[in-house]
Nucleic acid binder design. Structure first.
Length: 423
RNA sequence: GGUGAGGUGGGUGAGAGGCCGAAACCAACAGUUUGCUAAACUGUCAUACGGGUUAAACCGUAUCGAGGGUUCGAAUCCCUCCCUCACCGCCA
């Protein structure tokens, strides 16, 4: 959520910047701006009347104590008259605030100045690439065939148990999952991230805090009986740890990581793109989250990007880093890097990580602040990134490393899998 | 699921219609004292919004789990809801 004072002071710049996200904010921002003036005027009036009323009450108390009942009754009547106008003003105020909030939550975060303009994924900027694209023979198989051939993943069984998009991992497939999770967590904790094991069901407040609610209600599985949501990413619980928290500057940056299964309804996606592991309803992911000082958050973003790149190098996967254009960025992000690995048999790039700086967009919703000495608390910046999401990593590993002896496990992973080949 | 107790500032916890944004203690911070540390002493120590200011100071309002009600006036009385804890039941 954008900060009101930013809209108040830089209305036109806000509208201008949001155009980079292809969001026409003029009408809505203008409305928020006007409501803000209304709100302040109304609060001022209301506060003044309340002050008057409070003073009357104090006088009544004094008069009662002094035994001057008649005079007290007089003031009581006066106070009663005030009450009506106060109630009316407060109703107005509440209505204005409600309307303003309702508009404000619809406005996406402003993209950083570094964000390139653009509408589609084609407009994303490749800022880094690493590794040679694998040259596979024509007989190379896509990962879903390999998974079946080696008995690693049973998609059909998942359909039986749950439905499409809920694969069952078996044997070395299951072991590979566990190896990757441990590998990612070990690397993250070695890099200074504190390991968190959060709940995978969250309440509405948490969903709102990180921006999933109300905007993306349909993306999450909703357990209506208890009004809880299955998390689409560990970002939600791990960031919400700091909801309504005021940190001390010395505590920054906060670095947390966590492994969780992630659940996404992915309503409306079908077809070739979602074949095999490419897009699932349930998948595993290790997430890294940081809470940073506003002046340092872009340094932090680069650090996180480097960190994720390091993981991909260790896994010996060819990858590229994209700086997302305005049109392809998420609602809450100010700047996002996507990391894509090349999947040799499908011959396509697969997104395996998204590293974003949300600046104060989430913290404004979360009321996540920090205090510098005796200064007033100010909003911190939040960042997060996948490090990493498993399914597409598995897809690329299987496809790129297939050979006559089976599928080769990258060296860094062998201590975790306990085997060098899947055959 | 049943029964009971309870939700007050960073923590413990007092307050039971006006003198209460809230005692006291602990923690934290600043200072005095001190060879250093400790101790002792003094002071500071919630947040949001509005007004005000170059910025502060300062002023106003709201907030004692949430929402409603009674009253001139509510942390305090009443109602509803939520949550936590304890015991019982069930159970990984």
């Amino acid at each position: 959520m954008l900060q009101l004072n930013v809209i108040r002071e830089q209305k036109d710049q806000v509208i201008e910047r949001l155009k980079v996200k292809n969001f026409d904010a003029a009408a809505i921002i203008e409305q928020v701006y006007n409501l803000d003036a209304d709100r302040r005027r109304t609060q001022n009036e209301s506060d003044n009347l309340l002050a008057e009323s409070n003073q009357l009450s104090r006088q009544v108390g004094d008069l009662m104590k002094a035994g001057k009942k008649a005079e007290a009754d007089d003031l009581k009547n006066k106070s009663g008259a005030l009450k009506e106008s106060i109630a009316k003003l407060q109703q107005q105020l509440a209505a204005i605030e409600e309307e303003q909030q309702q508009l404000l939550v619809q406005v996406p975060n402003m993209p950083s100045e570094k964000v390139p303009a653009g509408r589609t994924p084609e407009d994303n900027e490749v800022v880094f690439s690493h590794g040679e694209l694998p040259q596979l023979p024509d007989s190379a198989k896509p990962h879903w065939e390999l998974a079946e051939q080696y008995g690693l993943i049973d998609f059909e069984l998942g359909v039986k148990l749950t439905g499409a998009g809920f694969p069952v991992y078996k044997n070395k497939g299951a072991r590979l999952q566990r190896a990757l999770i441990n590998f990612f967590l070990d690397r993250a904790t070695a890099a200074g991230y504190i390991e968190i094991q959060p709940p995978v069901l969250v309440n509405k407040d948490s969903g709102f805090g990180t921006g999933q609610l109300p905007d993306k209600e349909g993306q999450m599985y909703h357990v209506t009986l208890d009004d809880l949501y299955l998390i689409p990413t560990a970002e939600v619980p791990v960031t919400n740890i700091y909801r309504d928290v005021i940190l001390d500057t010395a505590q920054l940056p906060v670095k947390n990581c966590g492994y969780t299964p992630c659940f996404r309804r992915e309503a409306g996606s079908y077809g070739k793109d979602v074949r095999g592991l490419n897009r699932l309803h349930q998948f595993d992911k290790v997430e890294i989250v940081q809470v940073a000082h506003p002046e340092k958050s872009y340094e932090t973003l680069e650090e996180m990007r480097e960190y994720v790149a390091g993981l991909l190098k260790e896994l010996e996967l060819p990858f590229r880093t994209l700086k997302l254009c305005g049109g392809d960025m998420s609602f809450a992000s100010a700047l996002t890097y996507d990391m894509e690995v090349y999947s040799g048999a499908q011959k396509r790039w697969l997104e395996v990580s998204s590293v974003s700086n949300f600046e104060s967009f989430q913290s404004n919703r979360l009321k996540l602040r920090f205090r510098e000495g005796k200064e007033k608390p100010q909003l911190a910046h939040t960042l997060n990134g996948s490090a990493l999401a498993l399914p597409r990593i598995v897809a690329a590993l299987l496809e790129n490393n297939q050979g006559e002896n089976g599928i080769r496990i990258p060296k860094a992973l062998v201590p975790y899998t306990g085997f060098e080949f899947i055959n």
